[in-house]
Simulated assay, not measured.
Amino acid sequence: MTQVHSEPVSFNCDGHLLRGTLSRVEAPRLLVLINGATGVPASFYLPFARWLAEEKHAAVLTWDYRDFGASGSPYRSDTTMTEWVTRDPVAARAWLRAQVPDVPLWVIGHSLGGMALAFQPDTDTIDRIITVASGHGHITDHPWPFQARVWALWYLLGPVATWLLGYFPARRFGLGNDLPKGVFWQWRRWLLARGALPADRRLGGLRDPGYRGPITLVAMEDDVMIPPRCVWKMAGWHPNAQIERRLLVPADHGLAAIGHVHPFSARNSAVWPSLIA
């Protein structure tokens, strides 16, 4: 059995110290960067990362965005989604590439982590992109009754709580770890605007000509946050890529549910081979 070593690491981006974990085997033949979802700390992805390092004989980096998780506190932060989309993942990719030069690089992006890739420079250095539960969504794309919950969240509960506290108490709403206020407000605008991320001028627009390599768009049949039809729409963000669409059905893997966050959960490890196939 291949032995996997995991060690804490850190790297700098714009004066912010970003922290994560590098899980690797000796003499890795592949690099994998995992860009997480909004509100999901890097520690959540560690079991998957260790499995992937062994499975693909790889070095796998899990890491946290600035002022979130192990990379700092959200409570007095001015950070926005713009930094999480256009700055931090680029720094993480450069740091990982420097650790083991001259081997292929994959990027696996979960939700925000996958959507962000269309707005980043130098993606031509990536050999393969896999996005999981990432898509072009609007508040009306959520199925009922979940849609009723998000109307209340984005128009009432979230704004009031963020104004009062100075940060978004995501944990109280079952949306992962607490978030900087600027992250909440920008996230909210994306979900309430038909144009979503491509319409946000602060992201600099979709990169042109953009990524030209292979992209696998993975959707979960039971994902109420980013339903499959929203995942498929993201193909339009990458007009020059080679797109593969992959739908994961819980019953096909002997599972009752997968959902938006839990494709990477250890309890759903039965789907992991399908994520990277």
Rank of each mutant, 00 (worst) to 15 (best):
A58F: 04
H138L: 07
V4G: 00
P145S: 08
P89S: 05
Q186R: 14
Q242S: 15
L255C: 05
D67V: 08
F11W: 07
A98G: 14
S71I: 01
V107R: 04
L247Y: 08
P263T: 00
P28H: 00
M1P: 12
C230R: 05
V224N: 10
R50M: 10
L192P: 02
V90M: 03
D208F: 04
G158D: 06
A256W: 04
A219H: 00
V103R: 12
G39A: 10
R189Q: 13
F44R: 10
H262F: 15
D178A: 07
L153W: 14
T82F: 01
H142R: 15
L255A: 05
T82H: 10
R76K: 12
V32Q: 06
D223Q: 06
V218E: 00
R172G: 13
S265Y: 02
R201W: 04
P47M: 05
H262T: 10
L153H: 12
W185H: 09
G213H: 06
S6R: 01
L179E: 15
V9D: 01
N35W: 01
P227V: 04
G15A: 10
R149H: 14
M1I: 09
G204I: 01
H16D: 14
E83A: 15
A235K: 12
G72N: 11
A170L: 02
F264S: 05
Q120G: 02
Q186V: 00
L203A: 07
R267I: 12
G166C: 11
T21H: 12
G174W: 03
Y65G: 06
L203M: 07
T86C: 14
P198F: 01
M225I: 15
D124M: 13
H238I: 04
V9Y: 03
N240Y: 12
N12L: 15
K233Q: 12
R188H: 10
R50F: 03
F44A: 11
A152T: 13
D67S: 13
S43P: 00
F173V: 09
T82W: 02
D122I: 00
T21K: 13
L248V: 02
A98W: 06
W106C: 09
L164R: 15
L164E: 10
R246P: 02
I215Q: 04
T123G: 11
S23M: 01
T131I: 01
P74C: 06
W63P: 03
L255S: 06
P239F: 10
S269P: 03
R171I: 01
G15M: 06
V183C: 07
V132S: 01
G15P: 09
W95F: 14
A251M: 06
P145R: 11
A148I: 14
P239Y: 08
D14I: 11
S274W: 05
V271W: 02
G176A: 11
A58E: 04
W232D: 09
D122F: 06
S274R: 13
S6W: 00
V249Y: 03
A92F: 07
F119Y: 13
L46T: 10
M220N: 03
G166I: 09
G158S: 10
P104C: 06
V231N: 02
V85R: 09
